[in-house]
Amino acid sequence: MKKITIKDIALEAQVSISTVSFVLNDKGEKMGISKAVIKKVQDIADKLHYRPNMIATSLRTGKTRSIGLIVENISNQFFSVLAKVIEEEAKKLGYRVFYCSTGNDDERSAELVQSLLQANVDGFIITPTEKLDKSIDQLLKMKKPVVLIDRYFPGQDVSHVVMDNYEGAYSATEFLIEKGRRNIALINNNSGMIQMQLREKGYADSMKKAGLYNESLILHLDYHSSEENKIEEMIQFFEKNKAIDGVLFLANYMGLAGIQAIRKIGLKIPEQLSIISFDDHYSFRLHSPSISVVEQPLDAIAIKTVALLMDQMVKEDDFVVEKVLLKGKLVKRESV
């Protein structure tokens, strides 16, 4: 199939090549081209399925109309759904999205930032790892548009969009208490990231308010350990603390591993053990009994993130740093 060029568009529209170039580069009005001609050129470009040469466009404008998206694990349903909505929103605005997964590895995260800088992406959406603040500082010094998602660094003046993790954990724990659970365990990881700290604090404050807090019922798993090791560690934890009658898992991958540990021990949900997990997963809905979750507003997070990034890319030095906190939803199912 013949590649469509701006010359082809110019011939069909019966205008000059320069007119087509101005229109397709959003300079039509600035160059005094009438709205009727602008629309005609755009309609013909769409009809002919014109696709611009991205390399040539980048060399000419310094823009690639691309966004770098760095998340923890694109195979995790939470991040894959988030990425899908981000891509859909970016596509509406004429941007492509480059996906990268960090595996929560600081060194890999820093390397990915540098790779995307070399690819000359126009903006960054990042789920940062624990020590990525220096790389983000570099982006800010370079005046690169950047928005953090899911987590952030408290001392850094950068736009971010996150769920109210404290409130989500507080409400989930309170619900377990209302249902008569008294020895409620918390399963967290050892990453030390702000969202995990806030979730643990929400749990702790809710337990303390009820006079039920017991530090020995908190388990911190090694983030980088295998699922098998996580399952084994939880089995040992539950067998050591047989009075546990409720569990709050602070991420869906911990919840999925926890269900396997609970099954191997032979405990019945919810008769002997009520459970809630952060971040929904299709397996939680299919499980019998179905698993209650703290659901993040993924669509709202993704849409707001793209909007903030576009604001930075359009306004450049005139944008306002926004720190957005969205409320999650406790989805009550059969596991409590």
Rank of each mutant, 00 (worst) to 15 (best):
5 T>Q: 01
7 K>N: 11
7 K>F: 11
7 K>C: 03
8 D>L: 03
10 A>W: 11
14 Q>M: 09
19 T>W: 06
29 E>F: 07
35 K>P: 00
37 V>H: 04
40 K>R: 14
42 Q>M: 06
45 A>T: 06
51 R>K: 09
54 M>V: 10
58 S>P: 06
60 R>I: 10
62 G>V: 08
63 K>V: 01
67 I>D: 02
75 S>K: 10
75 S>I: 14
76 N>E: 08
77 Q>C: 07
87 E>W: 12
89 E>I: 01
91 K>T: 14
99 Y>L: 15
100 C>T: 13
100 C>G: 11
102 T>R: 07
106 D>F: 06
107 E>L: 15
108 R>P: 00
110 A>G: 05
111 E>F: 01
117 L>Q: 11
117 L>M: 15
120 N>R: 14
121 V>K: 05
126 I>W: 00
129 T>I: 01
134 K>C: 08
135 S>N: 06
141 K>P: 01
141 K>N: 12
142 M>E: 11
150 D>H: 04
153 F>M: 05
158 V>Q: 09
159 S>Q: 00
161 V>E: 03
168 G>I: 05
169 A>E: 06
171 S>E: 14
173 T>E: 11
174 E>A: 05
174 E>P: 00
174 E>V: 01
176 L>V: 12
178 E>F: 09
180 G>T: 02
181 R>M: 09
185 A>M: 08
186 L>A: 12
187 I>W: 00
189 N>P: 06
189 N>R: 03
191 S>T: 15
191 S>A: 07
198 L>V: 04
202 G>D: 05
214 N>Q: 14
215 E>L: 02
217 L>C: 04
221 L>N: 12
222 D>Q: 14
224 H>A: 09
228 E>I: 11
228 E>P: 03
230 K>H: 15
233 E>I: 00
237 F>N: 09
239 E>W: 04
246 G>A: 05
252 N>F: 00
252 N>Q: 08
255 G>T: 06
255 G>E: 09
256 L>K: 05
257 A>Y: 02
257 A>R: 04
258 G>P: 10
258 G>D: 08
259 I>L: 15
262 I>F: 07
263 R>E: 15
264 K>P: 00
264 K>E: 12
264 K>M: 10
269 I>N: 01
273 L>E: 03
275 I>E: 09
276 I>F: 09
279 D>S: 03
280 D>H: 10
281 H>R: 08
283 S>D: 11
286 L>Y: 13
291 I>Q: 05
303 I>S: 12
316 E>M: 13
317 D>Y: 04
325 L>H: 14
331 V>H: 07
333 R>V: 14
334 E>F: 08
335 S>C: 07
